[in-house]
Amino acid sequence: MNKKQILITLIYPIVALVLFVTIWTLCALAYSKPLILPYFWEVLAELWKLLSQGSFYLALLATTARTLLGFLLATIIAWVLAQFAADNVHVRKVLNPIVTVLRSLPTMSVILLALIWFRSGILPVFVAFLVAFPLLYSSFVLRLTQDNADILEMCAVFKVPCRVRMFKLYPSILLSTLMRITDSILPLTLKVIVAGEVLANTVNSVGVNMQNARLNVETANLLAWTVACVVLCFVLQALVALVRYILRRTNVCPQ
C-alpha cells in the first residue's frame, strides 16, 4: 500500500471521530452539567490517569480472558452439537426447541438468576455462553444443512463414511463459518461479560470498575472505562483478522 492509499484508509475514520467529538462537545456545552455529561477532554484526562495504574491493565486482561473463555466454550459446544445435528435429523429436532428457548431468554433475567447460582468470577462467563451459544449453533447448523445441502447429497451418493464427514468435512466447513461470524459475536460476548461483571461485582474486572465509578458519581471515569472497552473491542477484532490472515497464508482455510 502506498502513501496515498494509507491516507485514504485513515481519512474516513478520522473524519468520523472528529464529527463524533464535535457533537459530543456541543451537547455537553448545551447541557452544561459536567457531572452528567463530561467534556471529552475530561474523559481523556481520566483515561490518562487509568493508563498509569496497574489495576487497569489487570482488569482489562481479566475481562478479556473471560470473554475469550466464554466464546471458546460456546464455540466448542455449538460446533460439536451442530455436527451431530447436521448428520442426524433426530438430534436436530431435539436440539431445535432448546436452542430457540435459549435464544429468546432475556439477558438480564439470566444474569439475575445466575447471580444466585454462580460465583462472581464464573457468572459472566456463564451468561456469555448462554448468549453466544444459540447464535453459533444456529449459524453452524444452517451452514451445514441449508447452504451445503447439495454437498451433503453428494456425500450421500458417494457414501462418504461418517468418520470422514465428522472429522474432515464438517470441521472444514465450520472453520470457515466461524471465521466469518466471529466478527459479530465476539463484541457481543464482551458486552454481555461486562454487564455480568457489573451485576456480579466480579473482582478485577472492567464491569466492577464501571460500577464503582457509577456509585461514586465519577462520570468521567465511567466514560473513560467505556472508551477503554471500545478500544479493547477493536483490538480483539484485529486479533481475529490476524488469525484469519494466518489461516489463509498457511492454506488451512480459504476465507
Partner: peptide, 23 residues
C-alpha cells in the same frame, strides 16, 4: 455421479475433495 454444479466442497482443497470420497 457428476452433478450439474461441480459440487466441490469449497472449504477443502482439490486433493481433499477427491480424498474424502475414496476413503
Amino acid at each position: 455421479v457428476v452433478f450439474q454444479e461441480s459440487r466441490l466442497v469449497e472449504q477443502l482443497t482439490v486433493f481433499d475433495n477427491i480424498d474424502i470420497v475414496l476413503h
